[in-house]
Structures are given as structure tokens and as C-alpha cells.
Design a binder for these strands. Structure first.
Length: 643
RNA sequence: GCCGAUGUAGCUCAGCUGGUAGAGCAGCUGAUUUGUAAUCAGCCGGCCGGCGGUUCGAGUCCGUCCAUCGGCUCCA
């Protein structure tokens, strides 16, 4: 007998060789039907794999991320089986589960697969799923594995196997399909009750653009048909919230091929929104001891050679600008930091003057590959809400805490209540590839982790994810429909202080090297606007709305009164418009609602007589009648914290 | 950049197997003078993404370039 410990710490005894499925069945038949996999001592196993030793276990169902992952991984096999049966001779690359579903990279030879083929494949997948095909795990020797796929003519699998250790290789068989696979998998295909293939895409074999491009097919499966319907609804909702669509509808920004792709043009309304965001942030920066600096859009090539950016952005980015002076070249700045380093460098700095916190809404230019451009989230010219903090090593933690506070304050302000954080640390097995001393790295990593813990961030620790120049802390927000966006980043940099020979004079009268912290809260204004629009579905808060109030005269007779109201609002710095079109009030309200204008003021005979406005709040309807002053006070009250 | 798809009026879209462009919304004009999510009528508006080709004839077929979309890769 062996002892099996459950998540609630209770222990039950089972005979050796018991499987997850057996354990589930010993609890209830219902659980046995729902169990997709089992976690054994922290490792996810097939629910059908026998357990021979004492173990802590957790039965995994659809409600567990690992349960979903197992199902989607098995679904990738199911899709591969369906595709192999429909298109014999295709070759398979890799087919993992991903955050929302799974994909498989496939070499279809000469056949050009398209979404028209999806229905056929989905039907075949469901047919196989209903057959309740079992997933059978089998250990194979490297020779046997190679032999199998050589005979099958699948060079991709052969390549994968060649990279594996003999003795660690497993095959999974389901129906007519055998795949090289680590697993785990479902006991059988029956939990898969709904299938949807989502898209095709080209994907380089092993992510290497020099190698062959395979066809990737994305799909998702569910244990219930209703869940698929829900998922498809969510996709619809995401489409409705697409910032590119909202940006057009609300007339915020525009792209012109004549200006150049990836170069956003901000319309009057959009520019206003940007200004509001930047003004708000500036005010916070002053409060928190930052100082604004400013630098030009170009800098001498030598600046970027010193910083190392030339190497990174020189060849594949906008080409340097030449001048009448032979040999003289300037670059559009891809980063603000070199300029800020030179601002720091302008005079000897005392330890008493640190930290220096330089902030700039700096517009930078990077020649992104045409295929990656995407609305406002990926562009070629964008404005970072950038800042660089130059501090002493003993100030690092405190500075981190300061930035974390600012980030949290802003997330709260913008209603991003759901976010995760990640600390990127260096790879402990490969310390050589990082610049900076061992001691400094240890201290910095420690400082970041401590700062994050003090702020209860509960960060994910990602070893080996740090840049070569320093560890960092990233903030990833989840928007209203659960999508993740990386916004804020705080990065330690040992590299630039070195390259720019930054110094301060310490209390010991010796020269010391300051530490530099890069930090951006919004990331870029462009991206932040995009995320805001998708998060709010275009319903911007009052203080950000380009038009805060629209005055709707019931008929032309009240035009003069409407203008009077408008003037009063303007005097009070409330952004308003009059809808003086010859339309009925219902129509004007409808259009204002669709434009998500926070307040509508209906004015007619009653209002003109009593010097009032009838207030309608966007999304909520009629709020009743108020004096103009009452209304203005209420508006000013709501926005005052943001001015 | 690469793979695939798409590109028709300011916006959203229709236009079958090639015969020379259509709707709704927006805009303009007029009528109506309106009370909390679409008043009616008329009008304007298109080198059918650009360039080449096939054809008597191309929005429709072919090539090419550009842009957009979904991915790969990269990143804010």
C-alpha cells in the first residue's frame, strides 16, 4: 500500500500502481468523469499513469489551468490525427497547448490549406473524439523513435528526437496517430465536446526565420458546447473593443499611408486625450520628486555608439541622417536614456544630490518590421513616459518602492485593478553574460524582490529573463475582458553608467558609479491609449473624455439658451459641444450615447424658463433637472483630483 | 522581412460564372420645431488601393507594388 496525500492534507491508502483515475473513482464517479490529469508531487501526469510510491496529488479538472492545458494538448494531437487522416503524408512540427487553446505546426507539402478546410477538420476531430480514443503512453528507445519517424518521412520529428536523451523519450498513441510527446494527456478523447479552429498562420520551424515556414493552425476545444459559444462571444466583444475601431469611431487618431505606416496622426480629440494623460502624470511626477528634462529627436551617431544602441538599432532601423559635413551623422533617437545620461554628466555630482530623477515624454523612433505594426500598440514613432533615476546603491530599494507606489497609484486611477508582476533575474548558471559585478547583481535582485514584497506584489520570479544590463520588474495588467497587457517596467541598468562613465563624489570624497533605473509607467502614450480604449470599450472617464458634455437643444428655438449654457461651461473649463443639428432629441441622445459622451444636457422650454439643464448621464439615463451652477460644480468636483 | 487573407463613397458593406457601380449611415439642402437611444424628402459623393497585362470589353481574370488584418520574429 502507498500513502496518497490530498490537497486538503488528508491521507488515504491505495495499492501500488493506483492511477489518478482510480483515485478519482474512489471518491465519486462524477469526479472520475471530470478528471483530466493528475498532479503528482508537483508534476502533471496522465490520469492513467500508475503511481508506485507515496505521493502528494491533486486531481486536475477543467477548473485547473493544468487541466485545461492537458485537454488542449490532447486536442492538438486530435487535430493532428484528423489532419493526417484527411491529408495523408503531411509532416508535423510541434503542437503545444497555449494560453487559449493549442496549435500545431504542419508541413502540408504543396497543399495550400485555408480556413475553408476548417469545417472538415473540425468534423473529423469530433468524430474521433466521440470514439473515446485512449491516449496510450509508451517509453521508446531513441533508435526506435528515430526509426519510426524516418520511415514515416517526418524530418521534423527526427530532428527533435536527435536533440533528446535516450531513455527519456515517450510516444503517445491515440486512434491511428502516434506522436513524439512528453505528455501528459487526457485518459481518452471523450471530454472534448466542442472544437473550433481559429486561424492559420505561417510559423518558422523552430522560430528561426532562416528555416522553412510551416503552416500553424490554431484551435481551441471545450468540455461543453456552451463554453465554446461563450468563448466566441468573448472574441466578438474583443473585436468590438478593438482600439483601432474605437479610435476611428471616436475620431481620436488616424493613419495615412502618405505620412507612412506605423506613424500615428492624432486628431484634435485624440491629441486632447494625450495632453490630459500627460498633464495628469506630470503633476504626479512633480509630487514625487521627479524633474522634467527635454532632449531633441536626434542625436549624434557617436552618442549611440557610446550607449551601444547603434549596434542594436543602427543597421535594421532608420538609417542615420547625414549632414553637409563629411562624416557627420545623426540618428533619430530610439531611446531617451543616452540623452539623459549626458544631462547627468553635465557637472560633477555629489552623493547629496542623488537621486536625480529625470522624466521626459520623449518621442522615439524605431523601424519596426512592417509585419508587426499594429494599431497604436506597435508603431514606428511613439512617445514614452520615460524617466531615469540615477541613485546610489543604498537608495535602490527605496527608489523601487517609490516607482512601485506610482505604478499602483496610476493603475488605481485608471481602474486596472487586476495585474500581475514579474521580476526578471539573471540566469544563475550563466552569470558571465551579464554586465556588472556579482555583488551588485545580488544586491539589486535582492532590493527588487524586497521592494516588491513590501508592497505585497507577490511577483513571479523569472530566472534568466533579465536583460544583460540588469534585473527588472514588470507590471502586466488584465483588462476588462481578461486580456493581458504589459505596461509598466522598472529596470536596473549597470551598463549605461559604465559606458557613459557616470560618477558621483561620495561622502568619502572618492568617485563612485551611480546606478541607473529606467522606468516607464504607461510604457508609451500610444500603447496606453490603446489599452485604455480596449479596457473601457471607449467609455473614457469624465476627466479624460475629449468631449465631456454635449448640449442638446430640444429644437432650434433653444439654440441661444444652449449657447449661453455652453459659454458658462467654457468659463468653467468644461469641454462641451452643442448638437445644433435639425434632429429630434431622441436622435441626438442616441448619437451622444454612441459617442460615449459622459453628460448630455437637454435644454428646452422648461430649462430656459428656470435657468436649468436636464442632465442625462451616459449609460444611465435621465438624472433630473439641475441649475447650471449645480451641474458645473458636480462636474468640477468629479474632475478636480485629476487636474 | 516571411506565411496566409483582405483592399469598392468619410464609415459599414453588397456587386453570381468578365458587359462598364449599389445600399445604409455620415455630409449638404429643404420640410418639420421636435422632451430622453434613429422624422421625412431630395441632393452631393467612387481613376472599385497603385501600376502593368490578358480581353472587343476588367471592380470581377493574371502579374507586380503598396496598405491593412491574422500569425512568425521582435518589443513600448
Amino acid at each position: 500500500m502507498i500513502n496518497i496525500k490530498f490537497p486538503d492534507q488528508s491521507i488515504r491508502q491505495y495499492s501500488e500502481g493506483v492511477t489518478g483515475l482510480d483515485i478519482a473513482r474512489s471518491i465519486s464517479e462524477g469526479l472520475a468523469r471530470n478528471v483530466l490529469a493528475i498532479k503528482v508531487n508537483g508534476e502533471v501526469w496522465d490520469a492513467t499513469r500508475p503511481i508506485f510510491q507515496d505521493a502528494s496529488i491533486r486531481l486536475l479538472t477543467w477548473d485547473d489551468d493544468e487541466g485545461k492545458a492537458t485537454m488542449w494538448h490532447s486536442s492538438a494531437h486530435l487535430m493532428a490525427e484528423a489532419i493526417e487522416s484527411l491529408y495523408p503524408g503531411v509532416k508535423f512540427g510541434v503542437g503545444p497547448d497555449i494560453e487559449n487553446g493549442f496549435y500545431y505546426d504542419i508541413d502540408f507539402g504543396d497543399y495550400q490549406i485555408s480556413s475553408d478546410d476548417f469545417k472538415k477538420i473540425e468534423d473529423r476531430m469530433m468524430e474521433f473524439a466521440r470514439q473515446k480514443q485512449e491516449f496510450k503512453r509508451r517509453n521508446v528507445s531513441k533508435d526506435e523513435a528515430l526509426e519510426y519517424f524516418r520511415r514515416k518521412g517526418d524530418e521534423y520529428k527526427v530532428e527533435l528526437i536527435n536533440d533528446l536523451e535516450d531513455g527519456s523519450i515517450t510516444f503517445y498513441e491515440s486512434g491511428q496517430f502516434t506522436d513524439l510527446c512528453r505528455g501528459p494527456h487526457l485518459p481518452n478523447t471523450s471530454p472534448i465536446k466542442a472544437v473550433k479552429l481559429l486561424s492559420t498562420a505561417g510559423a518558422y520551424w523552430r522560430g528561426d526565420e532562416k528555416r522553412k515556414m510551416l503552416t500553424r493552425i490554431y484551435g481551441i476545444t471545450f468540455p461543453k458546447a456552451e463554453m465554446l459559444a461563450e468563448f466566441l462571444n468573448m472574441l466578438e466583444e474583443a473585436k468590438k473593443r478593438d482600439h483601432r475601431k474605437i479610435g476611428k469611431e471616436l475620431d481620436l487618431f488616424h493613419f495615412s499611408a502618405r505620412v507612412g505606416n506605423g506613424l500615428p496622426l492624432w486628431t484634435p480629440r485624440g491629441a486632447l486625450l494625450r495632453e490630459r494623460l500627460m498633464d495628469f502624470l506630470k503633476k504626479e511626477l512633480y509630487k514625487r520628486g521627479y524633474v522634467l528634462v527635454a532632449s531633441p529627436h536626434i542625436g549624434n551617431v557617436n552618442l549611440y555608439k557610446t550607449s551601444g544602441h547603434y549596434e542594436k538599432y543602427g543597421a535594421d532601423s532608420f538609417r542615420p541622417i547625414s549632414t553637409p559635413e563629411p562624416g557627420e551623422e545623426f540618428m533619430l533617437k530610439p531611446m531617451n536614456c543616452p540623452h539623459h545620461c549626458e544631462i547627468y554628466n553635465r557637472k560633477p555630482m555629489s552623493y547629496k544630490e542623488l537621486p536625480q530623477r529625470y522624466a521626459e515624454f520623449g518621442t522615439v523612433y524605431r523601424y519596426e518590421q512592417s509585419g508587426v505594426l499594429h494599431g497604436l500598440t506597435r508603431v514606428r514613432g511613439f512617445t514614452q513616459d520615460d524617466a531615469h533615476i540615477f541613485c546610489r546603491p543604498d537608495q535602490l530599494k527605496e527608489e523601487f518602492i517609490g516607482v512601485i507606489d506610482l505604478v499602483i497609484f496610476l493603475f488605481k486611477t485608471f481602474n486596472f485593478n487586476n495585474f500581475i508582476t514579474q521580476v526578471s533575474l539573471r540566469d544563475p548558471d550563466n552569470k558571465a553574460k551579464y554586465i556588472g559585478t556579482d555583488e551588485n547583481w545580488d544586491k539589486a535582485e535582492q532590493a527588487i524582490i524586497e521592494a516588491a514584497e513590501e508592497k505585497n506584489l507577490n511577483p513571479i520570479l523569472a530566472k534568466g529573463e533579465a536583460a544583460f544590463y540588469g534585473p527588472k520588474l514588470d507590471f502586466i495588467v488584465k483588462d476588462a475582458i481578461g486580456r493581458k497587457w504589459q505596461l509598466s517596467t522598472i529596470q536596473v541598468d549597470y551598463n549605461l553608467p559604465e559606458r557613459f562613465e557616470l560618477e558621483y563624489i561620495g561622502a568619502d570624497n572618492q568617485r563612485h558609479r551611480p546606478i541607473m533605473i529606467h522606468r516607464a509607467i504607461f510604457g508609451s502614450i500610444e500603447r496606453f491609449v490603446a489599452v485604455m480604449l480596449e479596457h473601457t470599450a471607449g467609455k473614457l472617464p469624465l476627466w479624460l473624455a475629449p468631449t465631456q458634455v454635449i448640449i442638446l437643444p430640444v429644437s432650434e428655438k433653444y439654440q441661444i439658451y444652449a449657447e449661453n449654457v455652453s459659454q458658462l461651461l467654457k468659463n468653467s473649463e468644461i469641454r462641451s459641444l452643442i448638437d445644433d443639428r435639425n434632429e429630434k432629441i431622441g436622435k441626438k441622445i442616441r448619437d451622444a450615447e454612441l459617442q460615449h459622451i459622459p453628460y448630455m444636457l437637454i435644454v428646452g422650454e422648461k430649462e430656459e424658463m428656470n435657468n436649468t439643464v436636464s442632465v442625462r448621464k451616459q449609460g444611465q439615463g435621465d438624472m433630473g433637472s439641475f441649475s447650471i451652477k449645480e451641474f458645473m460644480d458636480a462636474v468640477n468636483n468629479q474632475v478636480q483630483d485629476f487636474l
